[in-house]
């Protein structure tokens, strides 16, 4: 357990304290260092509440969230926030700076870093997300995908250990989304970054190491994409899973397990040889 970066223990929350119904009840799970975890669930499952609890915008009624072994509370929150980046849903509502580079530097100014250090970090973060040439631009004139890249640069500049994506890609078109996912994969490759995706997009969840399925404020399942996907509803399943189910429905015999697109292509190709 020494590797646990996020530890959620017996977490409960309700918005209206007089009401019986809890939004989240007795949630417990662990996220390890370098792991990418996706938290999925339908509307009203409590996943956005969980996101707000994880970044300290809400306080739990019961239970504790430990970040790198420290309980998340009023005393530790600012120290934790220097190591934890959060990206919210609407890219238009998140810019504080009037230019791309000013916005990326915002967290660094809050950390009271010296000017040269900020220059260096802003520069590197913008190059990493491929937005260096836009540094002087007004972020509101960028495309949706570019705006997201700027937000990610703002987080990377902090050199964080944890990033939380709260429905961060749902407003984008599929192409920009796929491009950003490969950026995320790159970021995760170092093994130093722990990522939490809160999403209803299964293509995003498919990239995670593990998926937590929330339902009515409770964890209904934790597992790898391969373990979780065969049980999801049709609308929520990723493309390769939908195609696999459709082929089975049409009387074909395919493996009874989730396959990624690459695996499915491979399987279909080989099937051609065997017949």
């Amino acid at each position: 357990m020494g590797d646990a970066v996020i530890e959620v223990k017996d977490l409960s929350f309700r918005y209206n304290k007089s009401e019986e119904k809890a939004v989240l009840s007795s949630l417990s799970f662990t996220v390890n260092k370098g792991e990418w975890i996706a938290i999925v669930g339908p509307n009203g499952s409590g996943k956005s509440t969980l996101a707000n609890l994880l970044c300290g915008l809400l306080k739990p009624d019961q239970g504790t969230i430990y970040i790198k072994g420290k309980p998340l509370n009023d005393e530790t929150i600012w120290e934790i926030r220097e190591k934890m980046g959060v990206i919210f849903q609407n890219p238009d509502h998140q810019f504080i700076g009037t230019t791309v580079q000013d916005d990326v530097a915002f967290s660094l100014e809050n950390m009271n870093l010296p000017y040269e250090e900020m220059q260096r970090r802003v520069d590197r973060a913008l190059r990493q997300v491929g937005m260096a040439e836009y540094r002087e631009k007004d972020p509101s004139y960028l495309s949706g995908g570019q705006k997201r890249r700027v937000s990610i640069a703002g987080i990377l500049a902090m050199e964080p250990e944890i990033i939380i994506f709260d429905e961060a890609f749902t407003m984008l078109d599929p192409k920009s989304r796929r491009e950003l996912f490969s950026l995320l994969k790159e970021m995760q490759a170092s093994g130093q970054l722990t990522m939490v995706s809160i999403t209803h997009d299964m293509e995003e969840a498919a990239l995670a190491d593990r998926i937590i399925v929330l339902n009515k404020g409770k964890i209904s399942r934790i597992g790898t994409p391969g373990e979780v996907f065969p049980e999801t509803t049709e609308l929520l399943a990723p493309f390769s899973e939908r195609l696999r189910r459709l082929l089975i429905q049409k009387g074909r015999r395919l493996p009874d397990k989730y396959m990624t697109e690459t695996e499915l292509i491979e399987w279909l190709w080989k099937y051609n040889f065997t017949t």
């Binding site: 600012w78 926030r81 509502h93 915002f106 967290s107 660094l108 950390m111 000017y115």
Partner: peptide, 26 residues
Amino acid sequence: QRSEELANVMDVRGFRADQKRSSFRQ
């Protein structure tokens, strides 16, 4: 709604009114 979202963003990006901040704009 927007100001609430903005306040949240400022919060999670570590803005505290009473703390000393450096300035990127020179």
